[in-house]
Nucleic acid binder design. Structure first.
Lengths: 154, 154
DNA sequence: CTTGAAGCTCTAGTTGCTAGAGGGATTAAC
DNA sequence: GTTAATCCCTCTAGCAACTAGAGCTTCAAG
């Protein structure tokens, strides 16, 4: 049985985050010592490691919740888990594509900077006048108004 | 002079977002009509377009605040603006690199899925056991505990 | 037995918005 | 001229996924 601090250390998740996961029901309520301190066994440790790993791969807590409930039912077909992972993969691919467009634009901006004064700064000018852009990045594409997922790229 | 709705439409920023920008001081307090409704001229419209464009390129509101205050002083050297853009570019590059690692890992997970039951699901198994990963993505690298910027990748 | 670290609960803050309640203003049709 | 629809106003609260801090208790080492 480990204290929350030890668990934090071994799994690599901060103490308040572990408490937060318990609070939102991702982790079961921990056992307590005589003095009301949380104690963890190997089962919760593994669950936390699972969460940590999935977070590292960019899954949302909601997706992780789903994956965890799937992993509790080993007899079900794995299509659902597969789908979640595929969705995540698509999401990652979309984000990469968008970031790459941003990278191009930023590179253009930075390269063109003549290091003079603000009044002829390419960075400021390009930001102020979208027409100077090489391509469209988020603006005026298929959907002029971007959605949350697009915003989340930052 | 435009109403907030028209401004929203022409610039492509939602009405509550415009009010929010005013509230946090990114936009000046708008003029008001006799009936207390906001009215906007071309100057604020341009400022908003600047903000919109910079947001699209992934700049934080703080960075945008800085860029805006720079653009108000055309006589200053443009090194500061250049630096902000360079920082942003580095950030984008780091994010792309990290997302690409995630993409690889997710692809491996998905490809190996035998479409059997959860009990032999590669997705679940890989998430539960980080040792199965091909490389290290965020875990156990130079710094075991990831920082905010890494998290922000989602 | 004391001291300092680690733990506890609770509230509030972060970023960049978004949603909703409960009202007033404006405009177009009739 | 009025009425209905649509806009706009302010204010508060909520989202994800934590993080930080206050003010307290418990534990482990010396």
């Amino acid at each position: 049985m480990q204290s929350i601090g030890k668990l934090s250390e071994t799994v690599g998740v901060k103490v308040p985050t572990i408490r937060y996961y318990e609070q939102i029901g991702l982790l079961p309520a921990a056992e307590r010592s005589a003095g009301n301190q949380r104690l963890y066994g190997s089962q919760t440790r593994e669950r936390l490691a699972f969460i940590r790993h999935a977070r590292d791969l960019g899954f949302t807590l909601d997706a992780i919740r789903e994956l965890l409930s799937l992993s509790d039912r080993p007899d079900l077909p794995c299509a659902a888990a597969d789908n979640i992972a595929r969705r995540q993969l698509l999401d990652v691919k979309r984000r990469i594509a968008r970031l790459q467009a941003l990278q191009d634009e930023l590179e253009r901006m930075v390269i063109q900077c003549g290091h003079g004064t603000i009044s002829d700064c390419r960075v400021i000018e390009t930001l102020g006048n979208h027409a100077l852009c090489a391509h469209e990045h988020a603006l005026a594409g298929a959907d002029a108004h971007q959605n949350d997922a697009d915003r989340a790229v930052t």
